[in-house]
């Protein structure tokens, strides 16, 4: 059993859980994820580790489906029956020079530990955060502390620049000499960012394909990268954005849309 130590609303429909998990916290590195199951009757869902403390991990959840809806109703002191991690490969962390981190929606959470670690490696960090409205934005305060430059975009212009992150990213890539781009968000956003950075700067994306076990056993999360079948759970979740077949990913992510009473996360 894994105890919920803290629960906090971060933004519209978005909340944070701090879960007691000493062994996972001990090993977790930026870019890795966990799979959880609420109880005996629950499904397994993957969530990226957004931060960690000595004996606990921080998960950020967008309430969009069955299990995330159930998670949103849990309180401090409640428990999760199953939690496994850290899963997947950790991010490549090095002194690249200037790194632009582009995050959209829930992607803001998983990009935070990567940004923090890259800052610790003495990189110049430019962060672009995108949200639907200012109400959907979170962790601005955490990013201010580590980013050399922080750009906020909202679709309705209620905060920062009006429009998608791609517009801001185009401006950054024109002005700055970037050594690395890291992008996490909805596949359509990652595809657009990859399109802009192609043949200009190496770009890494973290893929959110549908998983079951998360340990390489089932192949549900497979995606084509460089023409080859890769499993997001064990070969990823991060891949070279310019080699990922995003259309394939987006199509496979619609697999269970029609099975409405059992919508996947």
């Amino acid at each position: 059993m894994f105890k919920i130590l803290q629960k906090k609303k971060l933004a519209e429909n978005t909340f944070m859980l701090e879960v007691s998990a000493r062994k996972i916290a001990d090993k977790a590195k930026p870019g890795q994820f966990i799979i959880l199951r609420i109880d005996e009757k629950g499904e397994r869902i993957p969530l990226t580790i957004a931060d960690k403390k000595k004996n606990s991990i921080i998960l950020v959840i967008l309430n969009v489906g069955h299990t995330t809806g159930r998670l949103s109703k849990l309180k401090k002191g409640d428990t999760l029956s199953d939690l496994i991690g850290p899963l997947g490969n950790s991010s490549e962390l090095d002194k690249f020079g200037t790194v632009c981190l582009v995050a959209g929606g829930l992607g803001i959470a998983p990009i935070y530990p990567i940004a923090k670690a890259l800052k610790e490696k003495d990189n110049k960090i430019i962060v672009i955060l995108g949200a639907k409205t200012r109400k959907h934005l979170f962790w601005e305060d955490k990013f201010i502390k580590i980013a050399n430059k922080l750009i906020i975009c909202t679709e309705d212009g209620s905060k920062g620049t009006k429009g998608f992150v791609t517009k801001a990213f185009e401006a950054v890539i024109r002005k700055e000499k970037l050594n690395r781009v890291i992008c996490i968000g909805p596949p359509v956003m990652m595809k657009a960012v990859a399109h802009i950075s192609k043949q200009r700067v190496k770009t890494i994306v973290s893929l959110n394909s549908i998983m079951v076990d998360g340990i390489g056993m089932c192949g549900s999360c497979r995606v084509k990268v460089d023409g080859k079948i890769k499993f997001a759970c064990v070969d990823g979740p991060e891949f070279d954005a310019h080699k990922v077949e995003f259309d394939n990913l987006m199509q496979r992510n619609t697999r269970y849309d029609k099975i409405k009473h059992k919508r996947c996360y």
Partner: peptide
Amino acid sequence: LEHSPTPVK
């Protein structure tokens, strides 16, 4: 099974 939230085709 109906009670299970895990989907399958």
